[in-house]
């Protein structure tokens, strides 16, 4: 699909995190979920974030996606510092700059597949005709061309996740983030999802995937290992 393909594979940085920390102020001792992580991700990379439960993967991903704000440090995405955006600015940035795929899909249950995909485009004020054309293109891309009028309850988990991927791509984000995208799927559907991500990356998408799924991690070209809120290993990193 031409839209997600970069003009050329380059070392152009999509994401740059510097000494990022995130403390959760809990009664008593605060939780240091992310303690000083620096990370560069170039355009077109496919990165898996792995590590034991509670090591801070989701916290880091939420910081990278402007869902959460770091306690300290800076995060730059597509040339924009997102570490100190206001809530409205962060919301707008999530809409147009980032595509999210969640473990539990988070489709709107009352909307059809097509309407779910159109939602972020409608919010971004994309003209209707363009919106509809792109929705058709995206649903075709994820292999759901005939299911556009189906609602989430009429779709299997794997199909719902594919709708979620189409929705994530709707506004042509610079970065696609996924937290345990195969977590709710059986092995076979999970394998389909792994293929889908590989294809997305081959077509040019920059991907960061948090996962416990070894198969999914293996598919990534770069695997970042976290432990206790710090990077302990970063295999396959693009040359600096």
């Amino acid at each position: 699909m031409s839209d997600t393909r970069p003009s050329r594979r380059s070392e152009e940085l999509v994401l740059s995190a510097r000494d990022v920390r995130r403390d959760y102020p809990v009664a008593g001792e605060p939780v240091h979920a992310v303690r000083g992580i620096s990370l560069d991700i170039a355009r077109g990379e496919y990165v898996a974030l792995v590590g034991p439960s509670g090591c801070g993967k989701s916290t880091l991903l939420n910081l990278l996606g402007a869902i959460d704000r770091p306690t300290s440090g800076t995060i730059t995405i597509a040339g924009r510092d997102i570490s100190s955006l206001s809530d409205a600015e962060a919301t707008r940035f999530r809409l147009t700059g980032i595509g999210f795929v969640f473990q539990r899909f988070y489709l709107m249950p009352t909307l059809t597949a097509a309407e779910n995909v159109q939602l972020p485009m409608a919010e971004a004020k994309v003209p209707r005709a363009e919106r509809e054309a792109r929705t058709e293109e995206l649903l075709g891309y994820v292999g759901l061309a005939g299911r556009s009028e189906h609602r989430p309850y009429q779709l299997s988990g794997g199909e719902q996740q594919r709708v979620a991927i189409a929705r994530a791509l709707a506004n042509r984000p610079a970065l696609l983030l996924a937290d345990e995208p195969t977590g709710e799927l059986d092995a076979r559907t999970g394998a389909e999802m792994i293929e889908m991500f590989a294809r997305l990356n081959a077509d040019g998408a920059t991907l960061v995937v948090v996962t416990h799924d070894e198969e999914l991690a293996k598919a990534a070209r770069r695997v970042v290992h976290l432990r206790d809120g710090v990077v302990v290993d970063d295999a396959g990193r693009a040359a600096p």
Binding site: A88, T91, R92, F100, M108, P109
Partner: peptide, 16 residues
């Protein structure tokens, strides 16, 4: 609440 949370995560504004 879950749907509203999901919409907010996707970047749908409070006003919308």
């Amino acid at each position: 609440r879950r749907d509203v949370g999901a919409l907010r995560l996707l970047g749908i504004s409070r006003g919308t």
